[in-house]
C-alpha cells in the first residue's frame, strides 16, 4: 500500500492512481519517422534495481499526470511532480 504525494491533492493511497509506464524514456517528436526511435521508445526498457521514474495518473482525484520517483526494490517513494513540469514551460500563460 503505497502513498503517492500528488502535487495538487497531497498524499494519497496508490489505489487512487493508475500506473502509466516508464517516465525515463523520451517520446519521439510527433513527426519523427524513424523506426528505430519509435521501436526503442515503445519496446526497449532498462529494468533498474533502485530508483525509477514513472508516470502515474491521479484518476481518482485531479486526473493530473505526474512523474513519481520510486525504488523498485523497496517501493519507497521519494516524491512526485507534475508531468508537464518536465518540459519546463507552462502550457497556458
Amino acid at each position: 500500500m503505497l502513498r503517492i504525494p500528488c502535487p495538487f491533492c497531497g498524499e494519497r493511497d496508490h489505489h487512487e492512481f493508475t500506473y502509466g509506464g516508464d517516465a525515463s524514456v523520451t517520446r519521439p517528436a510527433y513527426d519523427d519517422r524513424s523506426l528505430d526511435a519509435w521501436y526503442r521508445y515503445v519496446f526497449v526498457r532498462t529494468n533498474p534495481n533502485g530508483r525509477h521514474q514513472e508516470f502515474w495518473q491521479h484518476v481518482g482525484g485531479c486526473r493530473a499526470w505526474i512523474v513519481v520517483e520510486r525504488d523498485t526494490r523497496t517501493h519507497e517513494i521519494f516524491g512526485a511532480r507534475l508531468a508537464e513540469a518536465r518540459h519546463g514551460d507552462a502550457r497556458h500563460e
Binding site: R27, Q57, V59, H87, R91
Partner: peptide
C-alpha cells in the same frame, strides 16, 4: 472511453505540452 480519455490527457500533459 476511460482508456482513450487518459491517453489523450497523457499526450497533452507529457508530450505535446505546446498544443493549446
Amino acid at each position: 472511453a476511460a482508456v482513450v480519455m487518459s491517453w489523450l490527457e497523457f499526450l497533452l500533459e507529457t508530450a505535446w505540452t505546446d498544443l493549446r
